[in-house]
Nucleic acid binder design. Structure first.
Lengths: 337, 337
DNA sequence: TCCCACAACTTACCCGGTTCAGTGATATGG
DNA sequence: CCATATCACTGAACCGGGTAAGTTGTGGGA
């Protein structure tokens, strides 16, 4: 089936291609009457501008890219990315931008994807997640001048704007809450240590624990998977001086930790309190439901998409703070027995 | 920064644009020596074909589309889609096709997305999930002749090929297993009733239960969310003649069901056995780990992507069966007390 | 009455690949 | 030795929108 083009509209309206283009794009150069006529014809025959033609003539590709860099088995279960994606879509859909996805296995592969996307002019910008210290992606993005927005921080992302969240403040809130309940031995199971936000959280955790006089505050590094979460939890719980509360860096590890406690015959929250970072339906799904540090991930994604579209439009975009993280107390935290 | 084009290569190689195009695409019409020279120049200057130009000149857009049609809060937690996406990527990446994603809220919106994508020539084909009886998307896809592959079935998808899985066989296996353990009162919590595979499973469940003489086999419809899973489970467990085993149509509802049982003081698997359909890390994460009907979702996705690329290449593609579903027994099933 | 400004268009070329119809040079066959 | 086939390439049209530059036609001001 033949797709309608602006030439078809032009013929039916009795004007030139150029006039149709002006009319459809809201440019001056056609009268209101003609514009209306053209728009109604376009509507009637179901016209959609060919994205390739549009992209080719110097305009935008009207697509943004996102790479998913976690191992496949984790991607599925962690609600984080899907939450982000929903958020992006809300913004992108409104301006009919498409979202192009690519699963990558390493930062090097990710850089290659960026270079290829740029070379192919397939996308107008990218959203970068999981930043590391001295991230190799930053200089490449700066070199090829691909509009980008970093999700995460605060941290050094060169000239690329970041949408950061106040992880330090949230960590402080969580630890203070546990201490107020009466906990003294608080441990933490972190995500991949190389990631900037793991480092931010670790630093904040150590600082607040020190300021509150909790000396044996330990962070065990893990990798966000359930298996590592279980292992780290076992390590913490078999010790003689086991913690009475554990803060996990994601929901999946927290749920795994809960299962380990139950399997060891420990009662949650009686013997062990659990706090999950990044709330998700998963947290309220288990028994007892998990106290969590919540934030609106979709809104976070939407904000990032907005800033990216802004950058693509050539506007100057600065760093911005995402919505606040707040503590949602549920059944997994209580005073220690 | 200026991106290299074939004209740049042509100039440096001292040949015409046409020759470069032939050389890069492995077409006949250039000598081996010239081809090698052109390829090495392309390599050297980091040439990537402009996808828009390529798509415009009648060729492929080199992208396929996928719509996500579940509510956002469920998308995140259900590993199913992410598993599929990983599988697609494995195939698509190899042939450097991009994957374009769109979150939709209704079948009508989804149809609109297909029409727009098609009009924009943004994609070469789509992967369709969550088919319903008399699915409104099928006739539209047939009308606009957009290459497509349906994930799910068996069922009527007109001329669109489907990758189906033997849900009936798997259901039979699960019920037989529970009966062999000694269960007589088996219930089921299903996904959205309108979906084809819910119907297939319900039919299979009723048939196998009838053939085994289990009269009170009941299916409670839900919608894949944890809340509905909890509600359905409560309804089943407060009755006088409560089931000793429940089969859930996804992992999320099964985990929710487990939490409800624990909250009601029932022991799993002592008082209640639980089987989850579609295994995921989530199932082995909780305590006790859930017996599940497993299949390789990523492989399923990869197969679908392969067939779609085949269809895009203009080959005739027929229905195909995906890898088998098998029962993975874990700690949530045992003989009833 | 003439000139100019301006709105409302049209014309024509651009973007960067793909592809088809030629064109010369060389090889093959009778 | 000439006709013909084949190879290796060139040139130009084309895909479908975007847009700068050019062309009408109209009205207003001097």
């Amino acid at each position: 089936m033949k797709r309608p083009t602006i030439a078809d509209i032009a013929r039916r309206a009795g004007v030139s291609k150029g006039a149709v283009s002006y009319a459809l794009n809201g440019q001056p150069g056609v009268s209101e009457a003609t514009r209306k006529r053209i728009l109604s014809i376009a509507q009637e025959i179901g016209f959609n501008a060919n994205s390739a033609a549009r992209a080719l003539s110097g305009a935008r590709a009207r697509a943004v890219g996102l790479t998913l860099s976690r191992p496949a088995r984790l991607l599925g279960i962690e609600p984080w990315f899907m939450g982000l994606i929903s958020g992006f879509e809300a913004e992108l859909g409104e301006r009919s931008y498409a979202l192009t996805l690519q699963v990558v296995t390493s930062p090097e592969a990710e850089v290659e994807v960026y270079r290829r996307w740029w070379g192919e002019r397939r996308i107008d910008g990218v959203i970068v997640t999981d930043t590391r210290e001295d991230d190799i992606r930053i200089p490449v993005l700066e070199e090829i001048q691909l509009p980008a927005v970093v999700i995460g921080g605060p941290g050094d992302t060169g000239s690329i704007p970041q949408i950061w969240s106040d992880d330090a403040g949230a960590m402080t809130e969580a630890v203070r809450y546990l201490v107020a309940l009466g906990h003294h031995r608080i441990a933490r199971v972190s995500g991949v240590p190389g990631l900037l936000h793991s480092q931010n959280r670790t630093k904040a955790f150590e600082e607040v624990c020190a300021s509150l006089g909790l000396d044996d505050a330990v962070t065990i590094p893990a990798d966000y998977t359930g298996e590592e979460g279980s292992r780290a939890t076992r390590r913490l719980l078999i010790g003689g001086d086991r913690p009475t509360a554990i803060i996990y860096d994601n929901d999946v590890m927290a749920v795994a930790g809960l299962a380990v406690a139950q399997e060891m015959g420990l009662s949650v929250p009686g013997d062990l309190s659990i706090v999950a970072w990044d709330d998700s339906p998963l947290c309220s799904l288990v028994h007892p439901p998990l106290t969590a540090l919540s934030r609106d991930i979709a809104a976070y994604g939407a904000q990032a998409a907005r800033e990216l579209l802004n950058a693509i439009d050539g506007n100057k975009v600065g760093n911005a703070e995402a919505g606040r993280v707040h503590l949602t107390p549920r059944g997994s935290t209580a005073p220690p027995r």
